[in-house]
């Protein structure tokens, strides 16, 4: 239900991986003396730092540069860490009717989501559910997580959803459902409303 930063992570890991790989290869070529013939760099036997570092670091612009670099790297790192927190990314309030002269109707999607959950929880075999509405009132986007017990008829549950619950939502919004995503989980618990009754017995043939 919650969304992760998968694309962001892949993109930045690729960029940093390529940078690290390129820097490492360049350093190894330089150490072997191969880079000198290609890019006319310093000979392999020469010192990495030719002069004294003291006067260089005494300049005030070096301090400012380090400060700015540190701030940029730190902020980027912090933003990347924060981006790892899973997000709900919910929809804004649904604007069902926006005719200013006649008034306007606004609906909180969480109200509809609660109604959907309550309806699904009464279906046979359902232990619990959570619904999240995204998109807009004209293109609603529903994500459902339904937990059923291990004896539930999943295909029957899907038929119930497709023929009853989802059409009810479309009717309420007066718009067809644009997208429906459903994750089914299994639980050993039995339904709270009690339609599953475990029983034992002997079958006589």
């Amino acid at each position: 239900m919650r969304q992760m930063a998968g694309t962001l992570n892949r993109t930045w890991l690729t960029i940093l991986g390529i940078l690290g790989l390129a820097a490492g290869i360049a350093l190894l070529l330089q150490s072997a003396g191969a880079l000198q013939s290609i890019a006319n760099t310093a000979p392999a036997g020469e010192k990495v730092v030719s002069g004294d570092l003291q006067p260089f670091f005494a300049q005030s612009w070096v301090v400012v540069l380090l400060l700015v670099m540190g701030a940029i790297i730190g902020v980027l790192g912090l933003l990347w860490v924060i981006a790892q927190i899973p997000r709900k990314n919910p929809a804004d309030a649904y604007r069902l009717d926006a005719d200013g002269a006649q008034g306007r109707t606004i609906c909180d999607p969480s109200v509809l989501a609660t109604a959907i959950e309550n309806q699904i929880n009464t279906l046979p075999g359902v232990v619990g559910s959570s619904a999240m509405l995204r998109g807009t009132a004209h293109e609603p986007d529903l994500t459902l997580k339904v937990t059923v017990n291990d004896r539930a008829d999943v295909q029957e549950l899907l038929r119930h959803l497709e023929t009853s619950t989802l059409p009810d939502l479309s009717t309420a919004l007066e718009a067809p459902l644009h997208r429906r995503r459903l994750q089914i989980d299994i639980s050993g618990r039995t339904q709270g409303t009690g339609t599953v009754v475990p029983s034992t017995g002997t079958v006589l043939k």
């Binding site: 930063a5 890991l13 400060l67 670099m69 540190g70 730190g74 980027l76 790192g77 860490v81």
Partner: peptide, 16 residues
Amino acid sequence: ASIVGILLLAAGVALV
């Protein structure tokens, strides 16, 4: 991503 992000954050804080 979290490991690299934390390392970047630590490097940035150290530089600052």
